[in-house]
């Protein structure tokens, strides 16, 4: 999927907090882009705008040439159906099984009655089970999510995102609440999926080392503006502007 942002602005509290201030960039199909920056730089706002959870105040957001910022109702949902997203806090239904959580991603494609009754059908169940197998949870299909570890939960969330066969995968701090070893495993899984499925990935991260290692390109935000846009394999000094005050990133 081709993604293009043009002069996107977003502020909160009646304009007193400018979260995004004229952000423009484009992402080509199949790229792995990491958005980096200190807390409050606007990373989360960016993802929220891209998945349609919020609307920008000004500027344009295009997905494959369709204006996301102007889409409403059915048109917006049609765009959202082509996205997969994963979150720092997983956003799973804790009481439901792993399989059910993955199946939930099939709900947008179903007609209302079967969706409410839970008649997902054999084919979707098999597909969901195969995806859980793909992320390494073949033995946890029926486990309620609250029994899983943090890394396992994020794997369920990834399987749920893949269930949508997304063209663009949005990841909001996907490893921030995991320990370093588990976080690395999740990143390796994401990279592997990206290679095999040819996905476009846009990830938020405050972990510069992981972002540099796994992505093709970095976009550095600081106080809502793009201050770096370029290759990921650069020395830390090149990213000084991102973390402000000329200080190199940790």
């Amino acid at each position: 999927m081709f993604l293009r942002l043009q002069d996107v602005c977003k502020s909160y509290n009646g304009g007193s907090v400018r979260a995004l201030d004229g952000v423009s960039f484009a992402v080509a199909e199949g790229q792995f882009v990491s958005v980096i920056g200190p807390s409050g730089a606007g990373k989360t706002t960016l993802v929220r705008l891209l998945c349609g959870a919020e609307r920008c105040d000004a500027g344009q957001i295009e997905l494959d040439g369709v204006r996301l910022d102007q889409a409403r109702g059915g048109a917006l949902r049609a765009l959202q159906r082509r996205l997969g997203s994963i979150w720092q806090d997983f956003a799973l239904v804790e009481q439901a099984s792993a399989l059910q959580n993955v199946l939930n991603a099939a709900l947008p494609d179903m007609s209302p009655l079967p969706a409410l009754a839970g008649a997902f059908g054999r084919q979707r169940r098999d597909e969901a089970a195969a995806l859980l197998d793909r992320v390494g949870l073949a033995d946890k299909l029926d486990a309620p999510v609250h029994q899983l570890s943090g890394g396992q939960k994020q794997r369920v969330a990834i399987a749920r995102a893949l269930m949508r066969r997304p063209a663009l995968l949005l990841a909001d701090e996907p490893v921030a609440s995991l320990d370093p070893v588990t976080g690395r495993q999740i990143m390796e899984l994401l990279q592997d999926i990206r290679r095999t499925e040819g996905l476009t990935v846009l990830m938020n991260s405050h972990d510069l080392a992981l972002a540099k290692e796994f992505s093709d390109r970095l976009i550095g935000l600081n106080t809502g503006r793009v201050v770096y846009d370029g290759p990921a394999d650069v020395p830390d000094q090149a990213l000084a502007a991102v973390y402000g005050g000329g200080e190199a990133a940790p």
Binding site: S85, D89, A91, E94
Partner: peptide, 15 residues
């Protein structure tokens, strides 16, 4: 959170 996540995938409100 899960409710909002499903919303961002385009799941209708009743579901």
């Amino acid at each position: 959170r899960a409710y909002r996540a499903l919303a961002s995938m385009g799941v209708p409100v009743l579901s």
